[in-house]
Amino acid sequence: MTGRPGYEALAPFFRIVEEGLSGLVEGADFFDTLAEDVVFEYVVSVPGYPRRVVGREAVAELYRGYGETMVLHSSDELAVHRDREASVVVLEYAVHGLAVSTGRAYDNRFVSVITINDRKITHWRDYLDPTAVFDAVGWPTRGK
């Protein structure tokens, strides 16, 4: 979870990541588990979303507006795969919520490849199903 105001729409995401990384990272909240110079890469994403974000505060700023687009109500289907020698954890999980603009259901599956050093996340590579986002927000508009 995060104690920072304005991130309530992401609470189920924070919970499932916390569960998947339990005992592996330290920090008071999700953002505090990130190294100051963390690198996030969005390998499979949606148009207009950045492909690479560097720095804890830059990641926090990127996620700040999430609730204007999507509001999550749950997360599940967690699978955790660890490579202790490489300090890598792969999380597979699903999130569920609603698109703010359309009220449509949002159900997406993610694979996050996370590198941890000194109990902080130093690298995060994310893969998602972009069609789940398109369907929820109604893009592209059918018939146009």
Rank of each mutant, 00 (worst) to 15 (best):
T2A: 06
G3F: 02
R4D: 08
P5D: 11
G6M: 08
A11D: 07
A11I: 00
A11S: 13
A11F: 05
P12E: 06
P12I: 02
R15C: 08
R15P: 01
R15V: 07
I16W: 03
I16R: 01
I16D: 04
E18S: 15
L21I: 10
S22N: 11
S22F: 03
G23P: 04
G23D: 07
L24W: 07
L24M: 10
V25K: 13
E26V: 10
E26H: 09
E26T: 14
D29H: 09
F30T: 08
F31I: 14
D32R: 07
A35R: 10
A35M: 06
D37F: 05
V39T: 15
F40D: 02
E41N: 09
E41K: 10
E41P: 01
V43T: 12
V44Q: 07
V46L: 06
V46H: 05
G48H: 06
Y49A: 14
P50I: 11
P50R: 12
R51Y: 06
R52D: 05
V53I: 15
V54G: 00
V54T: 09
V54R: 00
G55Y: 02
A58H: 04
A58R: 07
V59A: 14
A60P: 01
L62Q: 09
Y63P: 01
Y66I: 06
E68F: 07
E68I: 12
T69A: 13
T69Q: 11
L72D: 08
H73M: 02
H73C: 12
S74P: 02
S74G: 14
S75A: 15
D76G: 13
E77F: 04
L78W: 02
A79G: 10
V80S: 05
V80Y: 04
H81T: 10
H81D: 01
H81M: 12
D83I: 09
D83G: 05
E85P: 03
E85Q: 13
A86N: 09
A86D: 08
A86G: 04
A86F: 06
S87P: 00
V88Q: 00
V89P: 01
V89I: 11
V90S: 00
V90I: 14
L91C: 08
Y93R: 08
A94E: 12
V95W: 00
G97H: 08
L98M: 09
L98C: 09
V100W: 01
V100C: 06
S101P: 04
T102Q: 07
G103F: 11
G103A: 11
R104Y: 03
A105L: 12
A105I: 15
D107K: 07
R109N: 09
R109F: 09
V111L: 07
V111D: 00
V111R: 03
V111A: 14
S112M: 11
S112R: 04
V113S: 02
V113R: 00
I114G: 03
T115L: 02
I116P: 12
D118R: 07
K120E: 06
I121S: 04
I121V: 15
I121M: 13
T122D: 01
T122V: 14
T122H: 03
W124K: 05
W124V: 15
W124L: 14
R125W: 01
R125V: 15
Y127Q: 10
Y127G: 10
L128M: 13
D129V: 03
P130D: 05
T131R: 15
T131H: 11
A132H: 06
F134C: 10
D135R: 15
W139A: 14
W139F: 14
P140I: 13
P140T: 14
P140N: 06
R142E: 07
G143A: 15
G143E: 12
K144I: 15
